[in-house]
């Protein structure tokens, strides 16, 4: 009968084998790592080449910029992550969004006497583009979102309120509740809303509608109009983009 692997020698052999396996394992891992690094390098070079080649397109064409951003995002690269990084040097995109962010802040401050610190994203886009001058590149809504996201670092001053197909950018501190957002959404079409609209459409109690509307007046977001034949109307300058432009 042949007994295997029970003696002292066998244990030794086993240990040896295990050590060898381990070595081999490390070796393979290292191989893989080098391979991966190589792949990443190639990838980076290709991406760089691509970026270099399409630099002008990325800078000038908002559509193309968006696609490039999406491509980078899908592989876990954020070209905007650091303004000092390769991308910023390469494309100036980091600067681009910081610059845009500053222009957004400027427009928001300049228009806040009129709109109480709430601006339609499309109006914002037009005004920012106007502020950049005629020779500057086009700005897309997506660019605005990206730039506004950068502003988050500075605190919760800037928020985007989604309104279905459109959006509002809020540049004043102060949380708007669900009720207030709903009011804005409802008022979006006409630029104004009445208490009855709320009690009828949302089945809100009069008291709830009243409180929410009063809040918006207090925040300077809504103006009241007492000369409508159907009772008091609450107007939102931020939603009346067609007036006075």
């Amino acid at each position: 009968m042949h007994r295997r692997g029970a003696g002292l020698g066998a244990i030794k052999n086993k240990n040896l084998a295990q050590a060898k396996y381990k070595d081999k394992g490390t070796e393979i891992a290292e191989d893989k790592f080098t391979q991966m690094t190589q792949q990443m390098d190639t990838f980076k070079t290709n991406l760089e080449d691509f970026a270099r080649k399409h630099k002008d397109d990325i800078k000038k064409d908002p559509e193309f910029r968006l696609q490039f951003q999406e491509m980078c995002a899908s592989i876990g690269v954020d070209p905007l992550a650091s303004s000092k990084g390769f991308w910023a040097e390469m494309l100036g995109v980091g600067d681009f969004y910081y610059e845009l962010a500053i222009q957004i802040v400027e427009v928001c401050i300049a228009t806040s006497p009129k709109n109480g610190g709430l601006i339609n994203i499309e109006e914002l886009r037009e005004r920012v583009e106007h502020a950049r001058g005629r020779n500057s590149q086009n700005i897309s809504i997506d660019d605005l979102y990206r730039a506004i996201r950068k502003l988050k670092i500075l605190g919760s001053g800037f928020t985007v309120i989604s309104m279905g197909s459109s959006a509002l950018v809020q540049s004043v501190p102060g949380e708007l509740s669900m009720d207030h957002t709903k009011i804005l959404q409802q008022a979006q079409k006409n630029g104004f809303i009445s208490q009855v609209d709320l009690t009828q459409n949302f089945k809100w109690e009069v008291e709830r509608a009243c409180r929410a509307l009063e809040f918006m007046v207090k925040q300077g977001l809504a103006w009241v109009d007492d000369q409508d034949s159907n009772g008091r109307k609450y107007w939102f300058p931020s939603l009346c983009t067609n007036i006075g432009r």
Binding site: V217, V224, D225
Partner: peptide
């Protein structure tokens, strides 16, 4: 005419102090 002239609430004196000041 300024934009406010085409903004109906401009013709109602505003209850909110800040807004009224602008108005």
């Amino acid at each position: 005419w300024p934009w406010q002239y085409k903004f109906p609430p401009f013709f109602t004196i505003q209850p909110n102090l800040e807004t009224r000041k602008k108005q």
